[in-house]
Design a protein around this nucleic acid. Structure first.
Lengths: 358, 358
DNA sequence: CTGAAAGCGCTTACAG
DNA sequence: CTGAAAGCGCTTACAG
């Protein structure tokens, strides 16, 4: 690779002048000199060394993004938005699939620090895990002290996220839509209790029910994994329980997709016997049959704004928290409640309505 | 951030010694000295500066991966495999969604060169585009000359890919499976003719038919876009044509998914009226109804081996081309041919079999 | 308008 | 076993 020294020599100027020209810096350079340098750079296929530049500037033109798993469409969308904003600004995006594992997350952040990344964006939710959070806090403090940007796109252990989506509000409106269809006994497959985003969505579920004046039956709130297997297990649990329900709201789309699949396996028609709704609006939601009712999140925009927040932080500005809207999308998986709620008892009767205190 | 100078000072040694210890280099260091350096590094939260190191070594510990679009599940899988292999080796993965645009691709590769990436992996197929290929060839020659690795995971303009999947063979076996079900009039939604991977799959389609002794009807081979919209348009074209068919093979899963959707919209039952098969086995293929018959590609493994090839190239070894197997997966979207092939004419009759020369 | 020189943080031949 | 010093490729105050 040719260096600026060679460009300077070919143009017959100092490296200082060559540097000023190729970086288009605000410093007077005669037109003739400028032209000679540009000609030399082009002739030598000069590509500046970002490593040398970064060594001086303390940062490299890259931002890392920590996701659970890049094959999860939720994160792929966010990363794409981030990339679309970063690349015109000359920043490259480093993908870090942590599987929500504290070790992996920490090892990625260390690698990012070592590369002197200009920023790190946490796309996914934090967990209620004091030990892991404390270790991460040290890393992040060091990055910030060094002038790097730290951006969160989901709720996490320390303060407000710089940019996020309206998880609670979206869930409130989804519950309102189900109540509007006539549902009163709505189950909730809640995801993992330790994940902050799941907590927000559960809070939205409770608030939605309260707002509609519907009492909550705690037996219908079941903690699950955050994937399809969680939805299948959740359906099994609800069906094995004795609390009646006519609809299932889920903390995210994979859970809902798993629920749909298990209901189909058990021969329970959706939405005739039970309505199902998800959250996120991943591409698959529109393609399954019946189409999944869900809450659409502006994920690509979330990524774009995440990079904008990174740039603001880098410029020393303070980023006011942004909350992006979440919109209910009704498809074929939701409808009016059936005359008899699930679960069906062996005798054919459905269990009586009743609270956990009964 | 603390530098090695500070670590050395705290340990009371030279930076040379400190460097040898923290890098665990093969050079004798007394145990006592080693312990002091390690203690100092830990106390100061020392994270080596990969920029400074890279400046010396000519490369940074990153590899770029050029994909069409990271939100496409095909590429997300490959990238995940690449990442899983790269990260234990201390390499970070930079994601570059080029949208198969020569400008974007070139601008990403320039950024990668500027960062002195140790390697660039082209995950997607090359195009038959002489101008773009020539410009890219210059970039890649420069990278190789500088000792960086260049790896292709799909057919491209210059020579064999270092690692790839058996596109033609997989398609041959898929066609054989359709013929085994009784199909003789098989349509092919071929993707874009300029994309090398589409060319390979089309070649496999022809070879599969020839191998089964079935004559090809060129009217049934239709060029399409590589996404769902291509599948929908392809179905419309076949239905508007006058060549009978009982099955539709597609150059990839998105095309097949689009075909399925359009057939459903037009009230044509699958597989009763027509069988449909895809290629890739993206996660969605198993979840749609009916489940999509397709060809499974070991995409994660492709990514992993792509990184292994990168490491070999970096070590100065020459990577012998690898071709990974492709396996037919039959689901519910394929079955026996119907008594009357599509398309149905207004009068209810199907057009007669006949070649384009008629 | 132009350039000489210092210095970012590291590694490594070389000397001892 | 240890260290002094050069040099990777850049940018930028400083001097002219």
């Amino acid at each position: 690779m040719t260096s600026i020294t060679e460009v300077a020599r070919r143009a017959g100027v100092s490296t200082a002048t060559a540097s000023r020209v190729v970086n288009d810096v605000d410093h007077p350079v005669s037109e003739a000199t400028r032209a000679r340098v540009l000609e030399a750079a082009a002739a030598l296929d000069y590509v500046p060394n970002a490593l040398a530049r970064g060594l001086l500037k303390r940062h490299s033109p890259v931002v890392g993004v920590i996701v659970n798993d890049i094959t999860d469409p939720y994160f792929a969308e966010v990363v794409r938005g981030l990339e679309d904003a970063a690349s015109p600004a000359g920043f490259l995006v480093i993908i870090c699939s942590s599987e929500r594992d504290a070790e992996r997350e920490s090892s990625y952040v260390r690698l990012l620090r070592s590369l002197r990344a200009a920023g790190v964006v946490f796309a996914g939710s934090g967990r209620d895990d004091p030990a892991a959070n404390e270790a991460m806090a040290r890393h992040l403090a060091a990055m910030r002290a060094d002038g790097a940007a730290v951006v969160h796109l989901s709720p996490h252990a320390f303060g407000e996220p710089e940019v996020t989506v309206d998880n609670a509000g979206g869930m409130v409106r989804l519950v309102a839509a189900l109540v509007g269809l006539g549902h009163r006994r709505i189950a909730f497959l809640a995801g993992p209790a330790s994940l902050y985003v799941a907590q927000e969505r559960l809070a939205g579920f409770r608030a939605g029910l309260a707002g509609a004046g519907v009492a909550i039956d705690e037996r219908l709130v079941v903690a699950t994994a955050f994937g399809r297997e969680g939805g299948a297990a959740g359906v099994d649990a609800l069906l094995a329980g004795d609390a009646p329900f006519t609809a299932i709201a889920c903390a995210n789309d994979p859970i809902a997709l798993g629920a749909l699949q298990r209901l189909a396996e058990r021969g329970i028609p959706v939405p005739d016997a039970v309505s199902v709704a998800g959250f996120d609006d991943v591409p698959m939601a529109a393609l399954v049959a019946p189409g999944l009712s869900t809450v659409r999140l502006p994920l690509r925009d979330l990524g774009r704004r995440g990079f904008a927040a990174t740039e603001r932080l880098l410029a020393g500005e303070t980023a006011a928290p942004e909350v992006l809207p979440a919109e209910v999308v009704l498809r074929a998986s939701t409808g009016a409640p059936p005359p008899d709620p699930l679960p069906v008892r062996p005798g054919g009767a459905t269990p009586r309505t009743g609270g956990p205190s009964r």
